[in-house]
Design a protein around this nucleic acid. Structure first.
Lengths: 154, 154
DNA sequence: ATCCCTGCAAATCGTTTGCATTGTA
DNA sequence: TACAATGCAAACGATTTGCAGGGAT
């Protein structure tokens, strides 16, 4: 919790631009609530849950509803501006910094999610397509275990 | 639908044995309902949903409840006798033939799931562990797209 | 003035739980 | 006879939807 976080990372502003731009191009309005969601997505590497996003938005706009957050996320997904990591029993988590599919490491104890640089999974996707006959358009590659911090505590 | 399916695949009986054995070793009773679930899991390659399993069990035991199916699946999971493929928006699907994690191809149109032989993902898991610092215990590697049949229709 | 967006509440859906009843070892 | 498993219904949690009111173009 008391981790030095050098304020919103760089590239943050740029990412926000990209996202608002995408909204406008799609003929969507950039409302204050939506902007708030965008900023959170662009500024956090922790793959926040809907609830987490909601809490943060609500700090700035206390009347915001969860439904609006959901609707905003749905739209951003459709514009490929956010990646949804859908987990079965723990609700979804969202990645707005790197909106294209890539592998994640998920901590089963604290829920932390990391996305280290990995060799591209395209090869695997291609191999999968070849062997299955499926046309592969997307993927979700999740690795589950314990994050470094939780390994110590365990 | 009219695919030649040479009746319950071979190894079927053997798999059933394994599973019942696992139950007994865990001090669990092999009730008729549970056996019915086992058989379905051992005999189908289609990664059935809970609902599908339930329907089939209900054919043989009309009074069976969905809760019992869920409870049975939960137990089999804990014994590592079935693999749960947890999808966010579409409920879970189950693999009782190959209960250890392996990549799947999922058809976004009809829901078909294939698990072609693939080079082991252990390397990728190890790489992920190395780069993330996580201790990796499990994974779920899903590739989404269109199955061969749906490609034609599309 | 129109049309989109918001926010609230109610509805859904998959899954889980509590508990009385039943069946089995 | 005990004790575990079943079945039903109620509870749950995440997400979606319907709709009236409010804002922005």
């Amino acid at each position: 919790m008391s981790k030095r976080r050098p304020a919103p990372p760089q590239g943050n502003q740029q990412r926000i631009e990209e996202m608002t731009q995408a909204l406008r191009e799609a003929g969507q309005r950039v409302t204050p609530q939506r902007l708030a969601v965008l900023k959170i997505l662009a500024g956090s590497s922790e793959h926040p849950s809907v609830e987490k996003i909601y809490e943060q938005v609500a700090r700035e706009f206390p009347t915001t509803s969860l439904a609006t957050v959901y609707k905003t996320l749905t739209m951003l997904k459709s514009l490929n501006q956010v990646l949804e990591l859908g987990f079965a029993h723990w609700g979804s988590r969202y990645d707005g910094k790197t909106p294209h599919p890539h592998p994640h490491a998920v901590c089963l104890r604290c829920g932390a999610i990391a996305d280290p640089d990995m060799p591209p999974a395209e090869d695997m996707a291609r191999e999968m397509a070849r062997r299955s006959g499926y046309r592969i358009d997307a993927h979700q590659l999740d690795f589950f275990g314990l994050c470094p911090r939780c390994q110590k505590k365990a």
